[in-house]
Design a protein around this nucleic acid. Structure first.
Lengths: 342, 342
DNA sequence: TTGAAAGCGCTAACAT
DNA sequence: ATGTTAGCGCTTTCAA
């Protein structure tokens, strides 16, 4: 019988660092150095350890590792919705830039509820994340305090019209609304309408709308009426919204929609009712979605780059973690697209 | 001076259980019981502890907690894409059912790459998740072995046409393809075409297509031709695909698209080229998206319920964690929608 | 280049 | 109802 009295056996069947260390005749810390690729290890030692890892089927326990090193490689992400195409796009970009690293994202959905957002942030903070990506700059006071207090780096996304906690990555929705108004006025339209979805929840869309209206006012154009339906943005909602708007008001020559999905719905309404675009009615959206550009008459819109925004947000938090200096505000920008609907 | 020599001070500024315990004059384990709402605690003690928690701004360290209790409250989720609307919808449902609990989701995107999927699963396994939700049933042999070996419960989603590791939640894509073929043949169409996106990557769409074609063959209908573009599914792709299909083949009376987005693109092509739907050409998609139903002629399609699927997947893994018995296969089903395009 | 010792902050198991 | 003890599996710090 071999003497193994003084060897601690893990017993539970889970392979640990100690098992790998034993199998490769080195100490735990050496195995640890190999795994993390950090600290000096002789090439042959490294190989021995690596084959022991493979032989044992060892899977590192990052709970233990993070605890010991006082911080995890998790990045918390809170978005208000996944029904709005914007956020899946953001997550897509984020995944691209983050997944190549050893960081992983913990994703949660607040459903546009500030209290729920606060709860989710608290709960994610319990995982000692290296960074937190939150949407918008309107956190509740309590949440904002937590975000300032935490060691985790904070990126606020989609919006850059306020002072960020650490960094903000987004676009100016105020500017977007303004430029759209200017664009439409420059095309000669003078009597405007608006069709929107739930703007209380979607504060960014609301900002664009407010800015759009005040720019119209400054430009001397008239705003005839709005149709706002308190539901999440969808194509059928835009269709219904335009129908209601036109039923309630005469003489509108251009309609802005809260986004492209809504505008496509409006386009369908016009198709069905024989309203010629743009001679009888001009339409404009926001986002530059494919579906709008594939319409027989491509939609006038502002092309946004949400995937790119997600990518940059990921890059930004990783840079912050690594101590790379960052500008506090990153404007991802948008591009006015003069389509055939205006 | 108070005697506090033997008190361990945390020093680092982070509040720990010990700090809360000291502040409320109980032991750590009592605070722990209050936090986890588990085990007996006298009402007054509980209150004292709670106010100490609030007073100190304590945030539990789940890394430590999970390590001590041998397992985290994380649920790993790997989806192949976020560009395909299906998966944001799944995540939406998942968030609904999981977020009400103390579980959190670690989300990663494999980009339809089996090797990357394997790497992501390994990496998430390092977080000792309570469960893992993966897409499809075609994991690599190595990954499948890992999934069988792990303590984490595994749910495979979107597909139910094979033997699950633990449970599968999805629909039968074979049946979907078959029923669509039967439906169109029952409407009198006999000469079929197909417009698809990258089916090698999107194996589910491919399954539907294969099943569609073999059903046509059995039914004595003829399949005239296909147009497949190796890119992710999008509206403009469907438009382009139909243009190419019609340029290459004559006499097609009905076209199936790999999904609704593609079909909407096809619809736009017909609009632009004055092709009357359905008298000259019938169109059908898959998913039952809003945009298809908002078209002047609602799209013939099969309505799927991806949000519901996500919800059930979340419920399923939580049930498994709690030891609630589960059927190994959950068929979320779909509903044939006879629109005005066929 | 390698290792030994001492925790990280919590919970399971067993007292009391 | 509450507390004590002994780890969970790693990494940090300091030594060799």
């Amino acid at each position: 019988m071999l003497k193994r009295d003084n060897e601690k056996r893990t017993g539970h069947g889970t392979v640990t660092l100690a098992d790998v260390a034993r199998a490769s005749n080195v100490s735990q810390i050496t195995v640890s150095r190999v795994i993390r690729n950090k600290g000096p290890v002789a090439p042959e030692t490294r190989e021995r350890v690596i084959s022991a890892i493979e032989g044992t089927g060892y899977i590192p326990n990052l709970l233990a590792g993070s605890l010991a090193s006082a911080g995890s490689q998790l990045i918390g992400v809170i978005v208000p919705s996944l029904g709005n195409i914007v956020f899946p796009d953001v997550l897509r970009g984020l995944a691209e830039s983050v997944q190549a690293t050893s960081y992983r994202t913990v994703v949660a959905v607040s459903d546009y509820d500030k209290e729920e957002e606060g709860r989710l942030i608290s709960s994610i903070l319990s995982w000692r994340p290296a960074a937190l990506i939150v949407t918008g700059m309107e956190q509740s006071p309590l949440t904002a305090r937590q975000l300032r207090a935490t060691k985790a780096h904070v990126a606020q996304i989609t919006d850059i019209d306020a002072e960020p906690i650490n960094v903000a990555i987004g676009i100016s929705h105020l500017r977007a609304g303004r430029e759209m108004a200017q664009h439409l006025m420059s095309r000669g339209y003078r009597r405007f309408g608006f069709v929107g979805h739930d703007l209380v929840k979607d504060g960014r869309a609301n900002k664009r709308y407010m800015s759009f209206r005040s720019t119209l006012a400054e430009g001397g154009a008239s705003f005839v009426g709005e149709s706002i339906i308190l539901a999440p943005s969808k194509v059928p909602l835009g269709k219904q919204g335009l129908a209601e708007l036109l039923a309630a008001h005469d003489g509108i020559d251009a309609v802005l929609f809260s986004n492209d999905e809504m505008a496509v719905g409006g386009y369908f309404h016009c198709l069905e009712h024989g309203i010629d675009i743009p001679s009888q009615l001009a339409l404009a959206g926001f986002n530059g979605l494919d579906v709008g550009q594939a319409l027989p008459k491509p939609l006038t819109t502002a092309k946004t780059r949400w995937v790119e925004l997600g990518r940059r947000a990921g890059q930004a938090v990783i840079d912050m973690i690594n101590g790379v200096p960052m500008p506090p505000i990153v404007d991802v920008g948008f591009e006015m697209v003069a389509g055939a609907t205006s």
